[in-house]
Amino acid sequence: MNLVIQSPEPIADSHVKPLTALARAKRIDRDAAGHVLRLTDAEPLQRADIDAYCGTHRLDYAFIDPSLRLADFGLVAMDMDSTLITIECIDEIADFCGLKNEVAAITEASMRGEIKDFNESLTRRVALLKGLDASALDRVYEERLRLSPGAETMLAGARAAGMKTLLVSGGFTFFTEKLKARLGLDFTRANTLEIVDGKLTGKVVGEIVNAEVKARTLRETCAQLGIDPSRAIAMGDGSNDLKMMAAAGLSVAFRAKPVVREAASLALNFVGLDGVLRLF
Protein backbone atom coordinates (compact mmCIF):
# COMPACT_ATOMS: atom_id res chain seq x y z
CA MET A 1 0.00 0.00 0.00
CA ASN A 2 0.96 3.65 -0.29
CA LEU A 3 1.05 5.46 3.03
CA VAL A 4 0.19 9.14 2.63
CA ILE A 5 1.16 11.44 5.51
CA GLN A 6 -0.24 15.00 5.55
CA SER A 7 0.02 18.08 7.72
CA PRO A 8 -1.25 21.67 7.51
CA GLU A 9 2.35 22.73 8.14
CA PRO A 10 5.52 21.57 6.35
CA ILE A 11 6.48 18.17 7.73
CA ALA A 12 9.80 18.28 9.56
CA ASP A 13 12.70 16.25 8.17
CA SER A 14 12.99 14.57 11.57
CA HIS A 15 9.79 12.61 10.84
CA VAL A 16 11.06 11.00 7.63
CA LYS A 17 13.32 8.31 9.11
CA PRO A 18 10.99 7.12 11.92
CA LEU A 19 7.95 7.01 9.61
CA THR A 20 9.87 5.06 6.97
CA ALA A 21 11.03 2.59 9.61
CA LEU A 22 7.61 2.22 11.23
CA ALA A 23 5.91 1.65 7.88
CA ARG A 24 8.69 -0.64 6.62
CA ALA A 25 8.44 1.34 3.40
CA LYS A 26 10.78 1.07 0.41
CA ARG A 27 10.68 4.69 -0.76
CA ILE A 28 9.49 8.05 0.46
CA ASP A 29 8.60 11.08 -1.67
CA ARG A 30 7.75 14.59 -0.59
CA ASP A 31 5.60 17.20 -2.35
CA ALA A 32 7.15 20.54 -3.30
CA ALA A 33 5.55 22.40 -0.39
CA GLY A 34 6.58 19.75 2.13
CA HIS A 35 3.04 19.13 3.43
CA VAL A 36 2.75 15.57 2.06
CA LEU A 37 4.91 12.48 2.39
CA ARG A 38 4.14 9.45 0.22
CA LEU A 39 5.68 6.16 1.34
CA THR A 40 5.52 3.31 -1.19
CA ASP A 41 5.21 -0.38 -0.34
CA ALA A 42 4.19 0.44 3.22
CA GLU A 43 3.05 -2.37 5.52
CA PRO A 44 -0.65 -1.97 6.56
CA LEU A 45 -0.09 -4.29 9.53
CA GLN A 46 1.92 -1.42 11.04
CA ARG A 47 -1.24 0.73 11.25
CA ALA A 48 -1.34 0.77 15.05
CA ASP A 49 2.22 2.10 15.31
CA ILE A 50 1.62 4.64 12.53
CA ASP A 51 -1.59 5.77 14.22
CA ALA A 52 0.17 6.32 17.54
CA TYR A 53 3.06 8.23 15.95
CA CYS A 54 0.87 10.42 13.77
CA GLY A 55 -1.55 11.16 16.60
CA THR A 56 1.32 12.29 18.80
CA HIS A 57 2.72 14.59 16.11
CA ARG A 58 -0.63 15.87 14.72
CA LEU A 59 -0.17 14.25 11.33
CA ASP A 60 -2.89 12.71 9.18
CA TYR A 61 -2.20 9.37 7.53
CA ALA A 62 -3.94 7.00 5.12
CA PHE A 63 -3.10 3.63 3.60
CA ILE A 64 -4.16 3.78 -0.06
CA ASP A 65 -4.10 1.20 -2.84
CA PRO A 66 -1.38 2.55 -5.19
CA SER A 67 -3.46 1.62 -8.25
CA LEU A 68 -6.34 3.92 -7.25
CA ARG A 69 -6.87 7.22 -9.05
CA LEU A 70 -9.34 9.96 -8.17
CA ALA A 71 -10.91 9.51 -11.61
CA ASP A 72 -11.76 5.91 -10.62
CA PHE A 73 -14.53 7.40 -8.47
CA GLY A 74 -17.72 8.91 -9.85
CA LEU A 75 -19.33 10.54 -6.82
CA VAL A 76 -18.29 12.34 -3.66
CA ALA A 77 -21.05 12.32 -1.01
CA MET A 78 -20.72 14.75 1.89
CA ASP A 79 -22.42 15.38 5.16
CA MET A 80 -23.06 19.10 5.71
CA ASP A 81 -22.85 20.14 9.37
CA SER A 82 -19.31 19.94 10.78
CA THR A 83 -18.13 18.39 7.49
CA LEU A 84 -18.67 20.62 4.46
CA ILE A 85 -19.30 23.52 6.84
CA THR A 86 -17.81 24.27 10.25
CA ILE A 87 -21.03 24.69 12.26
CA GLU A 88 -24.02 22.64 13.36
CA CYS A 89 -26.82 24.75 11.89
CA ILE A 90 -29.49 23.62 14.35
CA ASP A 91 -27.31 24.65 17.31
CA GLU A 92 -26.82 28.11 15.82
CA ILE A 93 -30.55 28.48 15.07
CA ALA A 94 -31.27 27.56 18.68
CA ASP A 95 -28.95 30.33 19.83
CA PHE A 96 -31.52 32.84 18.55
CA CYS A 97 -34.06 31.54 21.07
CA GLY A 98 -31.58 31.19 23.93
CA LEU A 99 -31.41 27.39 23.78
CA LYS A 100 -28.06 26.73 22.10
CA ASN A 101 -26.50 24.85 25.01
CA GLU A 102 -29.52 22.60 25.44
CA VAL A 103 -29.81 21.79 21.74
CA ALA A 104 -26.04 21.43 21.26
CA ALA A 105 -25.88 18.85 24.06
CA ILE A 106 -28.46 16.71 22.25
CA THR A 107 -26.62 17.18 18.92
CA GLU A 108 -23.29 16.14 20.43
CA ALA A 109 -24.74 13.04 22.09
CA SER A 110 -26.46 12.06 18.85
CA MET A 111 -23.30 12.50 16.75
CA ARG A 112 -21.26 10.46 19.23
CA GLY A 113 -23.81 7.66 18.85
CA GLU A 114 -25.07 7.92 22.43
CA ILE A 115 -28.62 8.64 21.24
CA LYS A 116 -29.47 5.73 18.96
CA ASP A 117 -32.70 7.12 17.49
CA PHE A 118 -31.74 10.03 15.23
CA ASN A 119 -35.38 10.73 14.39
CA GLU A 120 -36.19 11.23 18.07
CA SER A 121 -33.08 13.37 18.54
CA LEU A 122 -33.96 15.65 15.63
CA THR A 123 -37.62 15.87 16.58
CA ARG A 124 -36.70 16.89 20.14
CA ARG A 125 -34.33 19.58 18.94
CA VAL A 126 -36.62 21.02 16.26
CA ALA A 127 -39.52 21.16 18.74
CA LEU A 128 -37.47 23.56 20.86
CA LEU A 129 -37.39 26.01 17.93
CA LYS A 130 -41.18 26.45 17.84
CA GLY A 131 -42.22 30.07 17.44
CA LEU A 132 -38.82 31.33 16.30
CA ASP A 133 -38.95 33.86 13.47
CA ALA A 134 -37.75 32.25 10.23
CA SER A 135 -35.42 35.21 9.63
CA ALA A 136 -33.07 33.49 12.11
CA LEU A 137 -32.23 31.00 9.34
CA ASP A 138 -30.97 33.82 7.11
CA ARG A 139 -28.88 35.21 9.95
CA VAL A 140 -27.27 31.83 10.61
CA TYR A 141 -26.38 31.49 6.92
CA GLU A 142 -25.08 35.02 6.53
CA GLU A 143 -23.38 35.53 9.89
CA ARG A 144 -22.21 32.11 11.07
CA LEU A 145 -22.02 29.54 8.29
CA ARG A 146 -18.46 29.03 7.04
CA LEU A 147 -17.08 26.41 4.68
CA SER A 148 -14.60 23.95 6.14
CA PRO A 149 -10.95 24.48 5.18
CA GLY A 150 -10.20 23.13 1.72
CA ALA A 151 -13.88 22.63 0.77
CA GLU A 152 -13.85 24.60 -2.48
CA THR A 153 -10.49 23.17 -3.56
CA MET A 154 -11.76 19.63 -2.89
CA LEU A 155 -14.94 20.23 -4.89
CA ALA A 156 -13.00 21.74 -7.80
CA GLY A 157 -10.63 18.76 -7.82
CA ALA A 158 -13.52 16.30 -7.74
CA ARG A 159 -15.22 18.03 -10.66
CA ALA A 160 -11.95 18.13 -12.62
CA ALA A 161 -11.72 14.35 -12.18
CA GLY A 162 -15.21 13.94 -13.60
CA MET A 163 -16.98 13.27 -10.30
CA LYS A 164 -20.49 14.36 -9.34
CA THR A 165 -21.24 15.85 -5.92
CA LEU A 166 -23.93 14.94 -3.38
CA LEU A 167 -24.66 16.88 -0.19
CA VAL A 168 -26.80 14.70 2.08
CA SER A 169 -27.64 16.06 5.50
CA GLY A 170 -29.63 15.44 8.64
CA GLY A 171 -29.83 19.24 8.69
CA PHE A 172 -32.10 21.45 6.66
CA THR A 173 -32.92 22.21 3.04
CA PHE A 174 -32.75 25.95 3.74
CA PHE A 175 -28.97 25.59 3.97
CA THR A 176 -28.35 22.73 1.52
CA GLU A 177 -30.15 24.58 -1.29
CA LYS A 178 -28.16 27.75 -0.72
CA LEU A 179 -24.94 25.74 -0.74
CA LYS A 180 -26.03 23.87 -3.87
CA ALA A 181 -26.43 27.16 -5.73
CA ARG A 182 -23.28 28.71 -4.26
CA LEU A 183 -20.97 25.74 -4.86
CA GLY A 184 -22.51 24.21 -7.97
CA LEU A 185 -23.39 20.90 -6.28
CA ASP A 186 -25.17 18.27 -8.37
CA PHE A 187 -27.46 16.66 -5.77
CA THR A 188 -28.73 17.51 -2.28
CA ARG A 189 -30.97 15.82 0.28
CA ALA A 190 -31.96 17.21 3.71
CA ASN A 191 -34.87 17.85 6.08
CA THR A 192 -37.51 20.53 5.50
CA LEU A 193 -38.40 22.78 8.43
CA GLU A 194 -42.09 23.66 8.56
CA ILE A 195 -42.66 27.43 8.47
CA VAL A 196 -46.11 28.98 8.92
CA ASP A 197 -46.72 32.75 8.86
CA GLY A 198 -42.98 33.39 8.94
CA LYS A 199 -42.33 31.33 12.07
CA LEU A 200 -40.96 27.85 12.73
CA THR A 201 -43.66 25.43 13.90
CA GLY A 202 -41.21 23.12 15.65
CA LYS A 203 -41.86 20.36 13.10
CA VAL A 204 -40.13 18.75 10.14
CA VAL A 205 -42.09 18.11 6.94
CA GLY A 206 -41.78 14.69 5.29
CA GLU A 207 -39.31 11.86 5.79
CA ILE A 208 -36.48 12.55 8.21
CA VAL A 209 -33.02 12.14 6.70
CA ASN A 210 -31.46 9.69 9.16
CA ALA A 211 -28.59 7.21 8.76
CA GLU A 212 -30.66 4.79 6.67
CA VAL A 213 -31.92 7.55 4.37
CA LYS A 214 -28.40 8.90 3.90
CA ALA A 215 -27.17 5.46 2.81
CA ARG A 216 -30.19 4.97 0.56
CA THR A 217 -29.64 8.39 -1.02
CA LEU A 218 -26.03 7.51 -1.81
CA ARG A 219 -27.08 4.20 -3.41
CA GLU A 220 -29.93 5.83 -5.38
CA THR A 221 -27.64 8.60 -6.63
CA CYS A 222 -25.06 6.04 -7.75
CA ALA A 223 -27.82 4.13 -9.58
CA GLN A 224 -28.92 7.35 -11.26
CA LEU A 225 -25.33 7.93 -12.40
CA GLY A 226 -24.96 4.33 -13.54
CA ILE A 227 -22.07 3.55 -11.18
CA ASP A 228 -21.57 1.04 -8.39
CA PRO A 229 -21.49 2.46 -4.82
CA SER A 230 -17.91 1.20 -4.62
CA ARG A 231 -17.09 4.15 -6.89
CA ALA A 232 -18.36 6.66 -4.32
CA ILE A 233 -16.35 8.53 -1.69
CA ALA A 234 -18.40 9.37 1.42
CA MET A 235 -17.34 11.99 3.96
CA GLY A 236 -18.81 12.60 7.40
CA ASP A 237 -18.22 13.25 11.07
CA GLY A 238 -21.09 11.79 13.09
CA SER A 239 -22.67 8.41 13.82
CA ASN A 240 -25.57 9.11 11.45
CA ASP A 241 -23.02 9.10 8.60
CA LEU A 242 -21.78 5.57 9.31
CA LYS A 243 -24.23 3.67 7.10
CA MET A 244 -23.64 6.03 4.18
CA MET A 245 -19.89 5.69 4.66
CA ALA A 246 -20.16 1.89 4.84
CA ALA A 247 -22.04 1.86 1.52
CA ALA A 248 -19.25 3.76 -0.27
CA GLY A 249 -16.01 2.42 -1.68
CA LEU A 250 -13.92 4.90 0.33
CA SER A 251 -15.01 6.59 3.55
CA VAL A 252 -13.41 9.70 5.02
CA ALA A 253 -13.89 10.74 8.66
CA PHE A 254 -13.45 14.52 8.78
CA ARG A 255 -12.82 16.07 12.21
CA ALA A 256 -14.98 13.16 13.30
CA LYS A 257 -16.26 11.55 16.48
CA PRO A 258 -14.23 8.52 17.68
CA VAL A 259 -16.87 5.99 16.57
CA VAL A 260 -16.64 7.40 13.02
CA ARG A 261 -12.83 7.54 12.92
CA GLU A 262 -12.67 3.88 13.93
CA ALA A 263 -15.06 2.77 11.18
CA ALA A 264 -13.81 4.92 8.30
CA SER A 265 -11.24 4.00 5.64
CA LEU A 266 -9.22 7.01 6.78
CA ALA A 267 -9.47 10.11 8.94
CA LEU A 268 -8.57 13.74 8.27
CA ASN A 269 -8.13 15.26 11.70
CA PHE A 270 -5.79 18.15 10.92
CA VAL A 271 -5.67 18.96 7.19
CA GLY A 272 -8.59 20.36 5.20
CA LEU A 273 -11.10 18.58 2.99
CA ASP A 274 -8.71 19.00 0.08
CA GLY A 275 -6.52 16.40 1.77
CA VAL A 276 -8.67 13.87 -0.10
CA LEU A 277 -7.16 15.02 -3.40
CA ARG A 278 -3.61 14.36 -2.21
CA LEU A 279 -4.31 10.70 -1.40
CA PHE A 280 -4.06 9.62 -5.03
Rank of each mutant, 00 (worst) to 15 (best):
F254S: 01
V168F: 01
I233N: 00
E143C: 06
M111S: 12
P258I: 09
S230Y: 04
L84G: 00
F174H: 11
G198E: 10
R189D: 11
D91P: 02
E212I: 10
K100R: 14
N240P: 11
L39R: 04
A181G: 07
G202V: 06
T86A: 13
P10W: 00
A52Y: 02
M80A: 04
I5M: 06
K164Y: 12
L266M: 14
A48M: 10
A71I: 03
G206C: 10
R125E: 07
D79C: 07
D65Q: 00
S265D: 11
I50L: 13
V16W: 02
P149F: 05
I64M: 14
R216N: 11
D81P: 04
D186K: 07
R27M: 15
T217S: 14
G184M: 12
R261F: 00
E152Q: 14
T86Y: 07
R58C: 11
F270R: 13
Q224I: 07
A32D: 10
V276M: 15
S82D: 08
L75W: 05
A234Y: 07
L225P: 02
E9C: 13
A160C: 01
D228C: 10
A263I: 04
K180I: 03
Y53A: 08
L3I: 06
F270C: 12
E220Y: 02
K164I: 05
R219N: 13
R27V: 09
G170M: 06
